[in-house]
Design a protein around this nucleic acid. Sequence first.
DNA 1: CATCCATTTCACGGACTCATCACCGGGCTG
DNA 2: CAGCCCGGTGATGAGTCCGTGAAATGGATG
Lengths: 243, 243
Amino acid sequence: MTVHDEQAGLILLVEDNRQIAEMVGEFLERRGYSVDYAADGVSGLHLAVSNSYDVVVLDLMLPGLDGLEVCRKLRKEAKKSTPVLMLTARDTLEDKLVGLEAGADDYLVKPFEVRELEARLRALIRRDRRQVSTEVLTVGNMTLDTATLRLTRDGQELTVSPIGLKLLAILMRESPRVVSRRDIEREIWGDTLPDSDTLRSHLYNLRRVIDKPFARPLLHTIHSAGYRLADLESEVASTTQTA
Amino acid sequence: MTVHDEQAGLILLVEDNRQIAEMVGEFLERRGYSVDYAADGVSGLHLAVSNSYDVVVLDLMLPGLDGLEVCRKLRKEAKKSTPVLMLTARDTLEDKLVGLEAGADDYLVKPFEVRELEARLRALIRRDRRQVSTEVLTVGNMTLDTATLRLTRDGQELTVSPIGLKLLAILMRESPRVVSRRDIEREIWGDTLPDSDTLRSHLYNLRRVIDKPFARPLLHTIHSAGYRLADLESEVASTTQTA
DNA sequence: CATCCATTTCACGGACTCATCACCGGGCTG
DNA sequence: CAGCCCGGTGATGAGTCCGTGAAATGGATG
């Protein structure tokens, strides 16, 4: 049994293909997640019911009990609301709909990039935690109260458009971390992304409000990587680990 | 004094109303938290400064030193970043904003449900711990945080181009080992390698940033074998050199 | 139907990367 | 010692990414 002392996230992977399972599992563990593993539907369901995972990755095709059934039972019988990401072989609308109907929260078509998978997982974990927690976000001297939607910096109250607020909330939740443009777009617009990149415009407008009037900028661009919201200052981030 | 061997968390409760304090304290202890208690601002601040709590629950109205002052002093004078949840009596916007500005991380309006309080506390504790959970690569005195993409050596922050970062991450992960040129190229560019060997240029630029300004180089060339990133220091075993 | 406002789209210029090339030097081999 | 191969060092042009601002779109409101 795995020991769960990691904080990044606890993941259950249910996949009968050993090769895929190994690759995915190793990658996620290197990224700081704790991963439990099951090779078939029955044991997967059992693990999912008896533990509390941050997210479950579920293959659609499984020996015995398939992914749809596992998901359905998890929701209906065990009354668990653990986020589920379904892995499907083909990208038919049917599969997607059936999967979502069974209670899956997202799906990914094989073959997939592990990085893509991780991005989706992070989004799911984030979404899940949002419901329960985090009423107030703080970065540097700026705070956003997600309950009242009030945004202040240095005591000044700032006004931002709806999408700007959503964008800001995402960046604040991930705070010192770099968030890729794709991730942001997916979280704001979901599957139906805008034709051209409107994100730049929103970022521009956001900056205009939260950074322009102040001395130190909080919103930083990392070229061809993404964006980061952080106060680059008294970061005593020297997590010195003598190797 | 309380013994702190519990897993759930160590909480400081500062509240002058005995009735509320007792109810909250008992509930939290039953839920597995360890709770320290103070009835006024001065002793509360003293406790908060001299111990390291997972989170502080702070009433806004306190005899002598009020919650705002306690929070402010904790942040400014004691430089403690312990999460603070503020309890406010009224739901006025002022109170919230002032509280957040003083450095509080969340707030709760009285009267409140203890369950709600616990949920918020859990969120704060988790958020606080999460910052430590990112993947950090370290070689010698140089560290790369793969989440924030920040690279430092000797405390100085270094700026590297995207490909340079990728290249560096590969070398750091393999650290004391030698990595062949072919391997690096495959990992960066995949199947479609560049026509001419661009890698040399990138290595050159990388060295320029991470080694040039420093005394001891970390990036070493192993002739007709590959590259190695390591701090040649306690290297007892000498590699075979055909002189 | 008229107006307003958030959002999207578009165009342009500037900043940044990157692949490529040409040149140089130094070590290995014969 | 001479030639050759490997690797370091820069400069350059093409292509990409990004900031900026304004104009077009579209939905909500009264």
